[in-house]
Amino acid sequence: MIVAGASVAGAAHRDAGRGGEDAFRAVRTGHGAVLAVADGVGSRPRAALGAHLAVDTACRVLAAVPPPGRDAGAPEWTAWTAERGAFLAGRCSRWARALTGNEDGEPDDLAAALLVAFLRPPWVAFVSLGDCFAAVLTRANGRDGGSGSDDRGGSRSPDATDTPDGTDSPESLTAPTVPNDSDREDNSDRKDVPGRTATPVERCHLVLPPPEPGGPPPAYTTSPSARLRVRTFTVWEPELSGVVLATDGCAPLALDHPSVRGLPDAAGPLPSPRFLPPLAAALRRGGGSAEPLHAVLSGTAAAERTGDDLTLLCALTEGDGRWG
């Protein structure tokens, strides 16, 4: 398993002489891996501390109780995720009160958006408070991406970022820091090259979109209603090849407006095929080094598209397609 993450202070924060207020953490357990990202609420005086507190608490809480087995069903995974999510929301609030109880401050000073995932392929359990977003990557069986269905009656996510010919778009927002090798022939997917086999196309699916603009304000880690409004859900995906968590500052880079695909606004944001699949490929080529990811988040394209902090954390299969 490759785990890579990076966090970059947004241009607006740097211009104001402030540091970043995001945080991320990943831990391996005997049953899988926990990934967590947090975005400190910028209007709060201790937002950065709140973000670090949130990811540390999330990793401890989700690693403390073993999840169901890989062969368990959806009811077991759903119940475990809901229980851990409610417990996490309560624990974040408790720690915030403990840290501010004897000081001039309120627990809300540590407010943060939090997104955490427990990865035990083919299962992924998500817990969310706030406005971070999540995506999964899949490698379909066969060059055409397969049927998009599974033997449990499930179906492939409807927002898969397929281009008309079933391949990733050659255009890349991340070039030149994450080159898509458009200036040289890539034979990895060709069946007519001796010694080569067809490599399944990797596709991106947005499983947790950011909140819709104009909707009700999200609940954060210190919100009184956090235990009631925490979102939990599970994904079973036998062709899972990656899990990506990101703070909302990454949305202008990683997501497309539906009009790009000729869809109405009601369709909501869609994952860009020019961002996450090429980035995942670059991270695998680098053996898991986070440098390509850090370069993208620090690059010109990011500065032009968002002034917010940018944090992205992902877990990917190895180059041979196995989780390890």
Score class of each variant (00 low, 15 high):
91 R>P: 07
90 G>A: 07
89 A>F: 02
91 R>K: 15
81 T>W: 04
101 G>S: 08
89 A>R: 03
93 S>T: 12
94 R>Y: 14
115 L>M: 05
116 V>C: 12
88 L>Q: 02
90 G>Q: 00
86 A>P: 12
101 G>I: 08
106 E>D: 15
112 A>R: 01
88 L>F: 06
83 E>N: 11
107 P>T: 07
86 A>Y: 14
113 A>H: 07
80 W>M: 03
93 S>D: 12
82 A>E: 12
89 A>G: 07
81 T>E: 08
106 E>N: 12
104 D>Y: 14
81 T>P: 06
86 A>F: 12
113 A>L: 08
97 R>W: 13
104 D>N: 15
114 L>V: 05
96 A>Y: 08
112 A>N: 04
103 E>G: 12
110 L>C: 00
88 L>S: 09
94 R>E: 12
92 C>K: 06
97 R>A: 12
97 R>S: 14
95 W>P: 05
80 W>A: 03
85 G>F: 01
100 T>A: 06
84 R>V: 13
108 D>L: 12
114 L>E: 04
86 A>N: 10
109 D>K: 00
109 D>P: 01
89 A>L: 03
115 L>P: 00
83 E>T: 11
97 R>G: 05
109 D>G: 04
101 G>V: 08
80 W>S: 03
101 G>F: 15
105 G>E: 01
92 C>N: 13
92 C>H: 11
88 L>R: 01
101 G>N: 12
87 F>N: 10
116 V>H: 02
102 N>R: 13
109 D>F: 01
116 V>G: 05
90 G>P: 02
82 A>C: 10
98 A>V: 08
111 A>G: 04
88 L>K: 06
80 W>L: 03
104 D>P: 13
100 T>S: 09
96 A>P: 00
111 A>T: 05
109 D>I: 01
84 R>H: 10
88 L>Y: 03
91 R>L: 14
89 A>M: 07
111 A>L: 07
89 A>K: 06
95 W>E: 09
112 A>K: 04
112 A>D: 02
107 P>F: 06
86 A>L: 15
106 E>W: 09
81 T>N: 08
83 E>G: 10
99 L>H: 04
90 G>H: 02
111 A>I: 04
88 L>H: 06
115 L>E: 09
101 G>R: 10
109 D>L: 00
99 L>E: 02
84 R>N: 07
93 S>H: 13
82 A>Q: 10
94 R>K: 09
96 A>Q: 02
91 R>I: 15
94 R>H: 13
84 R>C: 04
111 A>S: 06
90 G>S: 07
89 A>N: 00
85 G>H: 02
96 A>F: 03
80 W>K: 00
110 L>Q: 00
81 T>S: 04
95 W>I: 12
109 D>Q: 02
87 F>Q: 11
112 A>T: 03
83 E>H: 09
87 F>T: 15
106 E>K: 11
90 G>D: 02
101 G>Q: 14
93 S>E: 14
85 G>C: 04
84 R>P: 06
103 E>D: 13
87 F>D: 10
113 A>P: 03
90 G>L: 00
116 V>Q: 04
114 L>G: 05
115 L>F: 05
101 G>Y: 11
108 D>W: 14
82 A>N: 07
102 N>M: 15
103 E>H: 13
83 E>L: 09
105 G>H: 02
80 W>E: 01
86 A>V: 14
87 F>M: 14
83 E>S: 14
98 A>L: 11
86 A>G: 13
107 P>D: 05
116 V>L: 05
100 T>R: 02
103 E>K: 13
90 G>W: 02
